[in-house]
């Protein structure tokens, strides 16, 4: 545990464990902190309400300067989520900022279920 990325991921995990956003949980694999598993509950008043969705997050050593790769494990029917589970979300691509942490990423993914963006 020595690189900046790993240090930061431990911090992210601590924050997520101590102050989790509603309907979101996640944790790194005990044997590999660069790959996380997460579960998101569908936001209320959407077709996804009452559903629980599984995701993986894959980090590189360049985190937080580069975003993680987020993939849905659950099969999703959503205009911004591709067949292979990868998603099209601006903050995970060109609008990424190193100030985001895992809690912020998962919250954004949850709100993507809330307002799909078909034009992208």
């Amino acid at each position: 545990m020595s690189t900046a990325a790993k240090r930061r991921l431990i911090r992210d995990f601590k924050r997520l464990a101590s102050d989790p956003p509603i309907g979101i949980s996640g944790s790194p694999n005990p044997d590999n902190i660069m790959i996380w598993n997460a579960v998101i509950f569908g936001p209320p008043d959407t077709p996804f309400e009452d559903g629980s969705f599984r995701l993986t997050l894959t980090f590189t050593d360049a985190y937080p300067n580069k975003p993680p790769t987020v993939r849905f494990v659950s099969k999703m029917f959503h205009p911004n989520i591709y067949n292979n589970g990868e998603l099209c979300l601006d903050i995970l691509q060109n609008r990424w900022s190193p100030t985001y942490d895992v809690a912020a990423v998962l919250t954004s993914v949850q709100s993507l279920l809330n307002d799909p963006n078909p034009s992208r």
């Binding site: 431990i10 995990f13 601590k14 949980s25 944790s27 005990p30």
Partner: peptide, 10 residues
């Protein structure tokens, strides 16, 4: 989650 092995590192 509190007994996750990686949390002990923090």
């Amino acid at each position: 989650m509190s007994n996750h092995p990686l949390l002990a590192l923090a």
